[in-house]
Design a protein around this nucleic acid. Structure first.
Length: 684
DNA sequence: TTTCAACCTG
DNA sequence: CAGGTTGAAA
């Protein structure tokens, strides 16, 4: 299928410029001059349909334009260039059989010594007309009459000819503008047609309802589609009343099929474009702070372009989103949600030689402790669920190799966690598939590539179990992610991008699809979160440079950086809370053994389990010894501070923080790669 | 004044 | 986990 942009690019020369660069007299031109008199004959739509921003495309187009000779000047002449030419030549040759600009330009020599005084008047008048472009013709004529009275007869004749020429030119311009608008309208129509086509395709591929609709007949289906689109656009207005509501309102109306005419007048609310169009200003256009009439100025043109681009993108996104959401709603076999969570074993060993403590810690947590340690400490236990009988892990089944691309079929093995290789760790069931599924930003290309080829989406995190193929978790679910949040500006996506969609991020949102790994990504994904947590084993206080080094696949901006920093801040918070908690516990229990290493942090201890659970949930990474050392040191520091009563000082933790922050160790090189690092030995 | 990290809260 | 607040350091 030809992309819309391709189609539109086929007739660049037919695209009439909007006079984007015509600036009023006296104003500083914002656009470059075109020395050869060749006007920038910009297609307006084509750049809009590129993924790059319109503003970028303008620049690129300017370059390309230099290779095109441009259309004949006499009827394609842009008003702005018209003015340019006049500026260049100062005055025109009038009354010498030179009637069109095309005749004027080649070999035109400036008449420097034209002494006739009326020439001044002509120019003054023209300038006036430019300045008061919206003034009525009659008024202008009256002005001309007044001027004419003062002119000698011969001059008056020439003046008349000049006016005729002016009239012709004006007509030409008007026609050009009309053509141009027709083009626009046609293109918009075409785009909308494509949207409908797209919607039908999606229905055809996925919709079970499609069969029903086929029975109802094509006409009915068409009607439904139109209603669907109408709803989508009305959604748009509801969802986003601020942005471009004017246009969306109109699109909605048009999509109902009311007053549809092929010349596309429905595209614009009041039909302004069909009439001639001296756009009278004042009304905000497109809700995008573009004032009607302003769009023929450079800034207005860009605004208009951006508004169009935005609207088109939104419309496409909404159609896809809506259709897919509808499909998800009607899906007969939604993924099962694990409803019955039962508390699992509550015995935790913080020290092998201290067997009576665990039950106490778990069952009767002292009130003080509860106050000091709110939800954080308890949560892991509450969330545990026993393995359902039928889903017992099979340690004999091979674990998926993360270094390989996902197999086309990965049903059972992918369900099996790589965790629990550590004999000291309790066995937990795999997470149920997150539902609703993560809402991801998606592109049409992804959608179609996926729908047509039924291949798994590309992911940048193939390295561990939680990042395995969707279908492994929810085989009955259609291979389509729910679409949503296509509207917020890209810059805002970073924050949400995948994390929130994951429904608690680390807690199970891991089974998430990602955008392509090759290029850097705007936001942070659950995969990045996982990686950050693993990095915490090495560095508690990473600098932003460190972060940039170890997240090469992330496009860093202020928002992303601060999010990453916030993550580590949260990690630290959790870490210190646990340290304090266990230190207090040890202190409470007297712990005479504290003197000779009873406060040791072994891999079999409860504290270790909690930390591992938090930073290495899937347990597919070997917790480095160094981290245990650091944790142990922190634990001891907390313990000694508590025992010595230093914790009465409100700032008592600061000294501990100071110690810990010096204990960062270098992050392994394996973290420099995109995706999640993995321990080789864990895969064996 | 700005930046950063801890702290608090949801 | 994220947003907001606060206090200290740069």
């Amino acid at each position: 299928m030809d992309s819309p942009s391709d189609l539109f690019r086929q007739q660049p020369s037919q695209m009439c410029p909007f006079g984007l660069y015509a600036s009023p007299r006296g104003s500083t031109p914002t656009a470059p001059l075109y020395p050869g008199g060749s006007p920038p004959n910009y297609p307006l739509i084509s750049p809009l349909l590129h993924s790059n921003s319109a503003s970028q495309r303008w620049g690129g187009y300017q370059h390309r334009q230099s290779f095109f000779p441009g259309p004949p000047l006499n009827n394609k002449m842009d008003e702005g260039v018209d003015e340019e030419v006049e500026d260049m030549f100062g005055a025109r040759e009038l009354g010498r059989g030179v009637n069109t600009m095309s005749q004027l330009i080649p070999g035109c020599t400036r008449k420097v010594s034209d002494p006739e005084p009326w020439n001044q008047d002509v120019r003054r008048e023209k300038r006036l007309r430019m300045d008061n472009g919206i003034r009525g013709e009659g008024e202008m004529d009256r002005e001309r009459e007044g001027a004419r009275r003062d002119l000698p007869r011969s001059a008056r004749e020439e003046k008349r000819m000049e006016e005729e020429e002016e009239e012709r030119k004006r007509k030409g311009r008007r026609e050009g503008r009309q053509r141009q608008r027709q083009e626009l309208k046609l293109q918009l129509e075409e785009t909308r047609g494509r949207l409908l086509e797209l919607q039908r395709k999606v229905w055809r591929v996925y919709g079970e309802q499609q069969t029903e609709e086929e029975q109802k007949g094509g006409e009915e289906r068409g009607r439904i589609n139109m209603e669907e689109v109408a709803e989508i656009f009305s959604d748009e207005e509801r969802d986003d009343p601020v942005v471009c509501s004017g246009e969306s309102r109109h699109l909605r109306a048009s999509s109902r099929g009311e007053d549809r005419d092929r010349n596309g007048s429905e595209i614009f609310p009041d039909g302004t474009l069909d009439e001639d169009p001296e756009l009278d200003g004042g009304e905000v256009w497109f809700g995008c702070s573009l004032v009607r009439g302003e769009w023929e100025s450079p800034a207005g043109g860009q605004k208009f372009a951006q508004a169009l681009k935005k609207e088109l993108a939104n419309a496409v996104a909404r159609v896809i989103d809506r259709v897919v959401r509808l499909y998800a709603e009607t899906d007969p076999s939604p993924p099962k949600v694990l409803l019955h969570e039962t508390p699992s074993r509550r015995t935790f060993v913080s020290n092998p030689d201290d067997k009576q403590r665990p039950s106490r810690a778990a069952s009767h947590v002292e009130q003080e402790e509860m106050e000091a340690l709110p939800l954080v400490a308890k949560r892991p236990q509450e969330k545990r669920t026993p393995l359902p009988q039928g889903v017992q892990r099979n340690p004999l089944l091979p674990q998926p190799n993360p270094t390989l691309p996902p197999l086309p079929q990965a049903p059972v093995p992918a369900l099996l966690p790589t965790r629990n290789k550590d004999p000291f760790l309790p066995s937990y069931p795999p997470k149920p598939p997150p539902f609703p599924l993560p809402l991801l930003h998606y592109t049409m290309q992804h959608l179609f590539a996926r729908s047509l080829s039924n291949l798994p989406l590309h992911k940048d995190c193939l390295s561990s179990e939680p990042f395995l193929d969707f279908r492994s978790h929810a085989p009955s679910f259609p291979p389509l992610p729910l679409l949503s949040q296509l509207d917020p500006p890209l810059s805002d996506r970073g924050r949400d991008g995948g994390i929130r969609g994951g429904g608690g991020g680390a807690d199970g949102g891991d089974s998430t699809l990602y955008l392509g790994a090759g290029s850097s990504q705007e936001g942070l994904s659950p995969c990045h979160l996982k990686k950050a947590k693993l990095m915490f084993f090495y560095t508690r206080y990473p600098s932003s440079n460190t972060l940039k080094t170890y997240f090469p696949d992330v496009k860093f901006n202020r928002c992303v950086t601060s999010q990453l920093i916030k993550w580590f801040s949260n990690f630290r918070e959790f870490f210190y809370i646990q340290m304090e908690r266990f230190a207090r516990q040890a202190a409470r229990e007297g712990l005479p053994a504290a003197r000779d290493g009873a406060l040791r942090l072994g891999r079999d201890s409860e504290l270790y389990r909690i930390l591992n659970m938090h930073y290495n949930k899937s347990n597919d990474y070997q917790v480095p010894d160094r981290f245990l050392e650091v944790s142990e040191l922190a634990l001891r520091e907390f313990f000694s501070a508590i025992q010595s009563g230093r914790d009465a000082d409100p700032c008592w933790k600061k000294s501990i923080y100071k110690i810990i922050c010096k204990l960062d160790s270098p992050v392994p090189d394996s973290f420099r790669l995109p995706g999640c690092p993995l321990d080789a030995h864990r895969m064996a």
